[in-house]
C-alpha cells in the first residue's frame, strides 16, 4: 500500500489540463447547416451568435466557413441569417 499523502503534498485544486478543442462535439448534430455562398452577404451575424464559435470568417478566401467538427446543428445561424443563406438539412447517409 502506498503511503498516504499529507495535506501539504495534495495539490490545491483539480486542474483541467487539456484544451476542450481536442473534444469534438460535431457528431452530436442531427441537422447540418447548408451554406449558400452566393446568397451570403457576409454580415457575420451567424459567426457572432453561434454558441460554439464554429463559424469563422476566412479573410484569405473572403468567405464565412463552418467548422463541422464542433457544430452541434442547433440552427441559430439559419434562423438569424438576414439573407436566408443557411438552410438546415439532414445529411444524407453515405453509402
Amino acid at each position: 500500500m502506498s503511503k498516504e499523502k499529507n495535506w501539504k503534498e495534495i495539490s490545491l485544486a483539480a486542474v483541467p489540463s487539456k484544451s476542450s478543442v481536442s473534444f469534438l462535439t460535431g457528431d452530436w448534430k442531427t441537422y447540418m447547416p447548408n451554406h449558400a455562398l452566393e446568397k451570403c452577404v457576409k454580415c457575420l451575424t451567424c459567426a457572432i451568435l453561434c454558441p460554439e464559435g464554429a463559424i469563422r470568417f476566412n479573410p484569405e478566401h473572403g468567405q464565412v466557413e463552418f467548422n463541422f467538427s464542433f457544430c452541434k446543428g442547433c440552427g441559430i445561424c439559419a434562423n438569424e441569417c438576414p439573407a436566408k443563406a443557411i438552410a438546415m438539412k439532414i445529411p444524407e447517409e453515405e453509402e
Partner: peptide, 26 residues
C-alpha cells in the same frame, strides 16, 4: 465591429459540452 469581434480569438473555446442552441454559451 463585427469584423473586430470575429478577428479576436475566442477565449471560451469550442468543444464545451453545452446543449445545442445554448444561450449562455453565446
Amino acid at each position: 465591429t463585427a469584423k473586430d469581434i470575429i478577428a479576436k480569438p475566442d477565449l471560451f473555446l469550442p468543444g464545451h459540452r453545452a446543449c445545442a442552441g445554448c444561450g449562455p454559451a453565446t
